[in-house]
Write a protein that binds this DNA or RNA. Structure first.
Length: 146
RNA sequence: CUACAAACUCGAACUAUCGCCUUAAAUUCAUUUUGGGGAGGAAAGUCUGGACAGUAUAGGGCAACCUACCGGUGAAGAGCCGGCUUCUGCUUGCAGAAAGAAAGAGUGCCACAGAAAAUAACUGCCCUUAUGGGUGAGGGUGAAAAUGUAGGGUAAGAGCCUACGAUGCAGUAUAGUAAUAUAAGGCAUGGGUAAACUUUGGGUACUGUAAUGCCACGUAUAGAAACGCCUGAGAGCGGCUCGCUCGAUGUUUCAGGGUAGGCAGCAACAGGUAAGCAGUAAUGUUUAUCGCAGAUAAAUGAUAGUUUAGAAACAGAAUCCGGCUUAUGAGGUUUGUAGCAUU
RNA sequence: GCGAGAGUAGCUCAUUUGGUAGAGCGGUAGCCUUCCAAGCUUCAGGUGGCCAGUUCGAGCCUGGUCUCUCGCU
């Protein structure tokens, strides 16, 4: 019910897509992200992000992870990653609008931290909060010299 | 009938919306649209056997590791099927288990108890007698003590002899493809342990798709040290050694720099399903039919509703197949145990 | 993808070549002290992760299995 109300006043439906281009793939960029990027926490998810000035084919690149030490079964890890991806997909529009306006490029990584499997309702609440905070922190951090 | 346990089987369905990966076609050349396909019985553990690929391959010796009844099956196996032998259990003719070659090659070990745990000693018995000789019957402990019982025999005794048995060995005859079984005689009888070392027979190159091949991008034809340039550094025969082969702007080490993109490998075969036939079975074969994941920070999801059953277990492919092992909800089948009811 | 190690009392660890498993800390009870601590004495606590096998006998030998830890690429 939550998503239907949102959809009704959107003109372009394909903006909910979460395709290959939006995924964080380059091994180089990931290494750079974890060395230079800054972090904050919205329990149970830790966010690592970095403002990138090199040209990319999409203004935002996103990666997701869950620790294999805490979740031994691959099924559980897959489920966590799928849930986070799904809720990011449904709530990402404000972030995209912001990036388009300010002409910035960002690489982001979500890490699930809790020890137990997440409840879907909790993530539904937390991820909009998380994205608001992300927009805030991006606007506060000074852009590297271009 | 109910409950529990074990084995086998099976591994939810439908609708709507938003999404993911791949493929074909069309359309534009930023894409978009339409259609097709999209995890498992264990994908898991990595315990095993192969395929495939690369490197290597004159050979001998030693070491290391694996393996060990017979036949069949299969690409192969520490797999599977059938049989033999031995052991265990009780329902006494069934069920289960087996690392099932050798203890007449050698070494080691066998607690406590016991005279003694492997050389045969001690005690005892007998004959002679300060001694010497014969003997292994009795010693009741132990998981294990000279093959058991009866008779003869003797100074006392003993497979020393005989009868009926026990165990082992080699050959003969019969049955069986064979392991082996049965039969009549022959020979032998001082223990166990090889999942102690060992011996015997048979066998074993190493590394794994992040293998490997090609393309693109990019840096440093730069620096230091050691050894060597045929009187030979070093490399290979991946444990060692002998021996052999290769070997020159070379080899090794240190410090540092660059890249970390794409294509192939990569999804059609020891294939799946169904039926028939052969075989005790594992399995093989014939016909019909199907095309059935292919990523690279890594695709199957979310939400709402309906149904089985009110909220579905164990669990996620990463080169591919065969087997083994372990996990597993509800339902179904079979077997066993207990209880209740009826005859 | 590949290949190593560990599991013993509540905790930290011993246990030689197979013969009925111990130490320290902790716990119980008592003594000492006006009381507490320290000290002394005493007692309890283990089917050796689990399941099989070999053996007369397994913590130890062998196989399987479960859990944990570590390494290489």
């Amino acid at each position: 019910m939550f998503y239907r109300s949102t959809i009704s006043f959107l003109s372009d439906s394909h903006s909910y897509q979460f395709s290959k281009k939006e995924k964080l793939k380059s091994r180089k960029l990931i290494e750079k992200l974890f060395v230079e990027g800054s972090t904050f926490l919205v329990f149970p998810i830790k966010v690592v992000f970095l403002i990138v000035d090199e040209p990319m084919d999409n203004p935002i690149k996103v990666g997701v992870s869950a620790s294999s030490k805490k979740f031994k079964n691959a099924v559980d890890r897959n489920r966590i990653k799928r849930l986070i991806k799904e809720h990011y997909r449904l709530n990402k529009l404000p972030l995209h609008d912001y990036l388009r306006k300010t002409n910035k490029q960002v690489a982001v990584f979500f890490m699930y931290i809790d020890k137990a499997l997440p409840e879907n309702a909790l993530l539904q609440k937390k991820i909009p909060i998380l994205i608001d905070k992300l927009i805030k922190t991006i606007s506060e951090t000074p852009t590297p010299n271009i």
